[in-house]
């Protein structure tokens, strides 16, 4: 898994996550995002265009971060889910509790 901070727009931190979010790699996602939250970031656009795979451990990591940010008045939105990642969000119902957009551009228009 590779997490990259690709800059800031409209007061949102733009992040890309590539590769796999599984039981081994997800703690790194939580720690990295947690670090940015500790630095004061509370609005995130997380681009999953390069994410190939996610398991329940990955969803747990996202939910933990979403709940933490919600309590701080912040938010996370996701973009460009595809393949099995999209399927996992749909069958788990996560696509109804976390805002998902087709692209980073579409997400930015709503932020």
């Amino acid at each position: 898994m590779k997490i990259t901070n690709t800059g800031k727009q409209k007061d949102c931190l733009l992040i890309t996550v590539e590769g796999r979010m599984d039981a081994v790699t997800t703690p790194e996602f939580e720690q990295t995002l947690g670090g940015w939250i500790d630095e004061g970031e509370i609005r995130f656009i997380v681009d999953f265009a390069g994410l190939d795979y996610i398991s329940s451990a990955g969803l747990r990591g996202i939910l933990t971060s979403v709940k933490r940010l919600k309590a701080m008045g912040g938010r996370i939105v996701l973009t460009a889910l595809r393949g099995t990642v999209k399927e996992v969000f749909e069958i788990s119902g996560f696509s109804t509790i976390i805002p998902i957009y087709e692209s980073v551009e579409a997400a930015l228009q709503e932020m």
């Binding site: 398991s55 329940s56 747990r60 939910l63 979403v66 709940k67 996992v88 069958i91 788990s92 509790i97």
Partner: peptide, 14 residues
């Protein structure tokens, strides 16, 4: 809803 979301059981569901 998001505030009531638990992950337990989700893995087996998958």
């Amino acid at each position: 809803d998001i505030s009531d979301r638990e992950i337990g059981g989700l893995g087996v569901f998958f």
